[in-house]
């Protein structure tokens, strides 16, 4: 399996409301991340738009439906369509989430948490091996945000991710907001979590907003919070330059607003920690 070379840059998610901005203008991003499943279709406008955006920018394919933690294994149709899309788009890399979404009977279309057990780790690793073989490339997997833990948990999430990467050769997509959310919800240290990861396997960082509360909810519907920016600055100081993007999936503002937020990430990425206060 080939390696994924580090890629240093700052990007945004491709959302329908911004299609015209990306097609008609010059958007100041180093890459664009597309939700894979939105383009795993037969034809029509979405595919044409993605191909045109690809002519201007490197593209990352980020999935939400692989269900890498499913005990029943992966969906053949999903895998073959993802392979076809990856062959067509030639992305920087293909990613999905450490989660499960479905059983053999139904699909939740939500990123559900896995028990952190040896059994779950074995199932995840077997599925990752199969996915990487089917795609002919290594993948990135994103740490999830979660709202409950399981009584049968046998290890910390960062230990699960570390062994998963070591056994399968996959890379990590580190979602700083998800670390922040889960750390609050489950009472662990976000900095311990990041320190426990194999940082040499991290190829991308996600930043997003959340809804504060007794249980923090990962909503992606607002600006990145101050606490997440601070955690990002600390992480970048350890990790060095790494592809970073802002994720906004609901209440999507004009592109200029997201580009301004991305500029803060650029500034922090250049080591200007004072940018948070500004």
């Amino acid at each position: 399996m080939s390696a994924i070379a580090p890629f240093d840059g700052f990007g945004l998610g491709l959302r329908r409301t911004h299609y015209a901005d990306f097609l008609d203008g010059e958007v100041e991003v180093d890459f664009v991340e597309a939700i894979s499943e939105n383009y795993m279709v037969e034809g029509g406008k979405p595919l044409r738009v993605l191909e045109q955006v690809r002519e201007k920018h490197p593209v990352i394919l980020h999935g939400v439906s692989m269900s890498i933690g499913s005990a029943q294994g992966l969906d053949d149709d999903h895998l073959s369509r993802l392979r076809a899309l990856a062959d067509r788009i030639d992305p920087l890399w293909v990613s999905d989430h450490l989660c499960w979404t479905r059983t053999s009977a139904h699909n939740s279309h939500d990123l559900l948490p896995l028990p952190l057990t040896r059994e779950a780790l074995d199932a995840v690793c077997a599925n990752i091996d199969r996915a990487q073989d089917a795609l002919g490339r290594p993948m990135l997997f994103e740490n999830p945000s979660s709202y409950l833990t399981f009584p049968e948990d046998e290890m910390a999430e960062w230990e699960f991710l570390s062994e998963m990467a070591q056994r399968t050769g996959c890379y990590l997509l580190l979602d700083i907001n998800n670390v922040y959310v889960s750390a609050h919800n489950h009472g662990f240290s976000a900095r311990d979590y990041i320190a426990g990861l194999p940082l040499d396997r991290v190829r991308q960082i996600h930043l997003a907003g959340h809804e504060p509360g007794e249980i923090i909810i990962d909503t992606h519907d607002r600006a990145v919070s101050g606490g997440v920016w601070e955690l990002y600055a600390d992480t970048i100081a350890q990790l060095g330059p790494v592809a970073t993007m802002i994720e906004r999936d609901d209440k999507i503002p004009p592109l200029a607003e997201l580009l301004a937020e991305l500029e803060l990430a650029r500034s922090l990425g250049r080591g200007n920690a004072g940018a948070i206060a500004a």
């Binding site: 005990a71 499960w100 009977a105 139904h106």
Partner: peptide, 9 residues
């Protein structure tokens, strides 16, 4: 794991 996922869903 499969039993737990069926119960969760």
């Amino acid at each position: 794991l499969a039993q737990r996922q069926v119960a969760f869903l």
